[in-house]
Nucleic acid binder design. Sequence first.
DNA 1: ATAAGGATGACCT
DNA 2: GGTCATCCTTATA
Length: 218
Amino acid sequence: MKRDSGGAGHVLRVAGKPLPRSFYQGSPELVAREILGKVLVATAGSRQRAGRIVEVEAYHGADDPAAHAFTGITPRNAVLFGPPGHAYVYFIYGMHSCLNVACEPEGRAGCILVRALEPLSGIDEMRQRRGLGRHAPLRQLTSGPGRLCQAFGITRATHNGMDLTSAASELQIVEDGFRAGNVVVSPRIGIRKAAERPLRFFLADNEFVSGRRSRAGQ
DNA sequence: ATAAGGATGACCT
DNA sequence: GGTCATCCTTATA
């Protein structure tokens, strides 16, 4: 797929309906593997942003000390215990939002955290929302969970609990026929508890995966 | 390397 | 009511 310039009035070029609720009913690991390569789409009026999911992490419930759901249901994490396919958005470090998607059947907590996207469309708008210059490298737009939420305008106030499987939803995840190549598994990033579990999944050799690389980028 | 930043939950009184 | 440690990060130097 080609990237567009992100101009106003761009029409969605990713065909297809949002992924169905059944897609999210499995375990977080399973959903994490399968969601790689799918496309996150945010629509606002005639404008839209889209990016391919290239990096995610899986979080469980009572058996995962690093998960928000670990200590049981609270007002903040209630979405995780609800039906799958809904967005769990939380605010962290006083400035960033993070986007998760609830997995597992209703009553069981679990989710995947979206950590990085490859920008596909709405790129100019992403640059604006990120406060970057007109020629900022694409990698600075959506390589990181906070960055991608800023680029897409995702906040807890407007998106927490949103059903991503509804065709009418402002935020959706769709399949566009892309075939994900090799998937790499590693420990999750930035956590202290259960840090050894291999629950981070990303597309091998994709430049938009977050985190430190050998030299280039940041 | 590390400062910035704010919501949350746990634990008090 | 209040305080405090924690937190799935990012942009700087």
